[in-house]
Every structure is written in structure tokens, then in C-alpha cells.
């Protein structure tokens, strides 16, 4: 079959410089609607941030033995719940903001840097993570420690939800709410334990495991974190939705929409 010439036109440029290479003129990926992912990320993260702000300003109290993850630890005792949420939201928000996975998500979806692979990014200049403020993402490892403290308090909250607080203590409370809180803290633990910086801390920085003290244990720890790390984006998303879901559940209990099904003994 004879060939048919289409779209032949003047050269993109006589230069042999790489930027004059073919394909820089106009190209769009045809294999998938590349904009679906950025659009989903923008919608989810914007809605979550809006909700987090709203819930932080609104504030709410405990429901029975339950406490929303947005208000733990209760470091602003004596002030309003809203102020408590504003204080404690900082660490998890910074954690997610500096997380390697969320960085990918917002660079691609919010900053279009690039919007998708092999899709041209619209910026004329580029500095990546070499200038302020993105260079501060290098501090992610410190935020990890702050979040480790917050997650420890969330475990304490689950413990207190099981075993009651104040006048209620001495009983074991097994309710849907305790399950929701437990699920949430498990997912948050998986998210923070699968962190790239944590992976580096537990053993990633070691070049020769058999040459260092506790090398075998460090290798095992690194392997364990690596197994979790493979699914880090999944943990990032499900833990975000579990925080959200836990707060919504407790809010519905507070509004009296239904009673938390539970056994108390």
C-alpha cells in the first residue's frame, strides 16, 4: 500500500539543540484522559482542606467516650474545642503537605508541574525543590516525629474509648464508634509507618547492614517499612478519608441522628 503524506509542514526549527527536537511543537497524550487524575486530586484535597478548616473553627465536644481525631490531643483544655483543633491540626497538615506522595499530587494537580507525564507543563521557569518554600520539604523527617506524638495520643483515645473515661471508667465499651476510631488510628499508623523519611531513618541510610550494630534487626525493620511503603499512596488516601469519616460519624452521633450501637460490660 502506498504511503500517504499528511501533516508535513515546515520544520520546527533548524537548530539541533534538544529543545528544537521533534514533538515539542504540540503534543498531547492520546492513550488516556490524563486530566482525570489531577481533577480528582484537586477536588478531594480542596474539599478535605475546606472540611478541616470548617471543623477546626466550629469545634465540637466528646460524644460519650469518643473524641474526634481533629481534636486530639486535647492540648487546649480550658479553651474552646476550636482552638484545640487549630493547635493540633498543624502537625498532621504539615506532615501531609511535606509528604513525598502528596508533594507529587499537588505539584502535578495544583501546580501543573507537569499536569501529567509527557504533557507539557505551562511554566516558563522552574526551580523544583531548590527554592523557598518547597525547599523546606526537606524538613519532612522532623514533622514525622511531631505526627508520631499525635498518633500516640490517638491510640490513647482509642484505649480510653474502650475502657471509658471519668465516671464511665471501669467498664469496657464496644461500639461502632470504637471500631471506627480503631480503624482510623490503624490506618494513620500505617500511613506514618510507611513514610519515606521513616524508611530512611530505620535503615535506608545504612549501606552495609552486616557491618553495623543491630544490622540484622535494622534490615528487618527496613524491609517491613518497605513493604508498607510500596502502598504509601494508598495509606495516604485511606487515612485521610478515615479521619474525615471518623469526624463525620461522631458529628452525626452528636446531632442525635442515631445512637451508637454498642455493648457495655
Amino acid at each position: 500500500m502506498a504511503s500517504e503524506t499528511t501533516a508535513m509542514g515546515p520544520s520546527a526549527g533548524a537548530s539541533t539543540r534538544p529543545s528544537a527536537g521533534p514533538g515539542l511543537v504540540a503534543r498531547l497524550r492520546r492513550d488516556a484522559p490524563w486530566w482525570v487524575l489531577p481533577a480528582t486530586v484537586v477536588t478531594s484535597l480542596t474539599t478535605f482542606s475546606g472540611y478541616a478548616l470548617w471543623t477546626a473553627l466550629l469545634g465540637h465536644d466528646r460524644w460519650g467516650p469518643y473524641l474526634s481525631p481533629f481534636y486530639s490531643p486535647e492540648i487546649a483544655a480550658g479553651r474552646t474545642r476550636a482552638s484545640s483543633a487549630i493547635f493540633v491540626a498543624g502537625a498532621p497538615l504539615l506532615f501531609r503537605f511535606t509528604c513525598y506522595y502528596y508533594r507529587k499530587a499537588y505539584y502535578r494537580s495544583f501546580l501543573l508541574d507537569p499536569p501529567a507525564c509527557a504533557v507539557r507543563d505551562p511554566h516558563r521557569t522552574y526551580s523544583g525543590e531548590t527554592s523557598f518554600p518547597t525547599v523546606l520539604n526537606n524538613l519532612h523527617r522532623y514533622v514525622w516525629w511531631l505526627v508520631a506524638i499525635v498518633v500516640s495520643f490517638l491510640w490513647l483515645d482509642v484505649f480510653r474509648a474502650f475502657f471509658g473515661t471519668g465516671a464511665d471508667s471501669g467498664h469496657i465499651w464496644l461500639g461502632v464508634g470504637t471500631g471506627v476510631m480503631l480503624g482510623n488510628v490503624v490506618l494513620l499508623t500505617a500511613y506514618s509507618a510507611s513514610c519515606h523519611s521513616f524508611r530512611h531513618m530505620v535503615g535506608g541510610h545504612v549501606d552495609c547492614f552486616s557491618c553495623v550494630r543491630f544490622g540484622k534487626a535494622r534490615y528487618q525493620a527496613w524491609r517491613g517499612v518497605t513493604l508498607l511503603n510500596i502502598r504509601h499512596p494508598m495509606w495516604a488516601w485511606v487515612s485521610m478519608f478515615s479521619v474525615w469519616g471518623t469526624d463525620i460519624y461522631l458529628r452525626m452521633l452528636q446531632a442525635g441522628w442515631f445512637l451508637d450501637p454498642h455493648i457495655r460490660f
Binding site: T6, A7, G9, P10, S11, G13, S15
Partner: peptide, 18 residues
């Protein structure tokens, strides 16, 4: 199958082949 054809400084474009 549309294949890019061309050389630097010359004509460039896609050519369709059956």
C-alpha cells in the same frame, strides 16, 4: 500507523501508512 518523518532543518511531519 502515523510515523514522524523528517530531519533537522528540513520538512518534518507525520506520514500515515496502512
Amino acid at each position: 500507523v502515523r510515523v514522524f518523518r523528517g530531519v533537522p532543518g528540513g520538512e518534518q511531519g507525520e506520514v500515515a501508512y496502512d
